[in-house]
């Protein structure tokens, strides 16, 4: 019997190694798997590269992970929020490397990684500072730059419902990066508000098929309190 549901955070975090590339779902705090991030801090892996849209708010979740000093590099589109205190301090001190990527390019780089596409041409960022050092090519009269796929060793995902095969649904705009990150990592770890029986999810509404999911942990924390 396939059962991807794990009972403890230690099982969920097992085997995450130093130096891993960790994809962290969410847009701001919505859909960001804070319990799994806390679990990763507890687990202790260091020298990490984190891929996330934002760089953390206040001192919780992603910001708390950065504060431990175990993140060597962050890849994100918008390392600015209402309260990016932790990241700004590390960045100004030269203690964290920042790769700024246009939001759509970031999503597509992970989609490509999950779909077996090693690189792709995109019109985004042509002629800008973010195109420096990248191959430029004209295709049918328009200029494009070459962007590499962005695979992860681990993805940390937040879902709304999950079954034991790892089929997932999401809640409203908390879907955001989660489904695409789930496809792009070797090990995809999910925290979910609800666990349901196999067969209970409407197959028409499954947004991430279980094939992309490695482990599921039940974390019924309620509602996000900040955005």
């Amino acid at each position: 019997m396939i059962n991807k549901i794990v009972q403890t955070m230690a099982e969920a975090m097992a085997g995450i190694r130093d130096g891993s590339v960790v994809l962290v779902g969410g847009f701001g705090s919505i859909g960001q798997p804070n319990a799994l991030i806390d679990g990763l801090i507890e687990q202790g892996a260091k020298d990490l590269t984190v891929v996330a849209n934002n760089s953390g708010v206040g001192h919780v979740g992603l910001a708390r992970l950065l504060e431990t000093g175990r993140v060597r590099k962050i890849v994100c589109s918008f390392p600015r929020t209402a309260d990016p205190v932790v990241f700004e301090k590390l960045w100004r001190a030269g203690r964290i490397e920042l790769e700024v990527v246009p939001q759509g390019t970031m999503a597509e780089r992970m989609r490509a990684a999950g779909a077996g596409i090693p690189a792709f041409y995109t019109p985004t960022a042509v002629g800008t500072a973010l195109a420096e050092g990248k191959e430029e090519r004209e295709i049918r009269g328009r200029k494009y730059i070459l962007e590499d796929a962005l695979p992860g060793d681990v993805a940390l995902i937040e879902a709304w419902e999950a079954d034991r095969w790892g089929n997932l649904t999401y809640k409203s705009s908390a879907r955001n990066f989660n489904p695409v990150m789930a496809t792009a990592a070797k090990t995809t770890i999910v925290q979910t508000q609800h666990i349901v029986e196999l067969g209970a999810l409407d197959p028409e509404k499954v947004a991430t098929a279980g094939i992309f999911v490695s482990r599921v942990l039940h974390v019924p924390y309620g509602e996000p309190t900040v955005t």
Partner: peptide
């Protein structure tokens, strides 16, 4: 302050 692009380049190019 740290550079932050968000979706502006994608929207502008697309």
């Amino acid at each position: 302050s740290a550079p932050a692009v968000g979706g502006a380049m994608d929207l502008a190019a697309g």
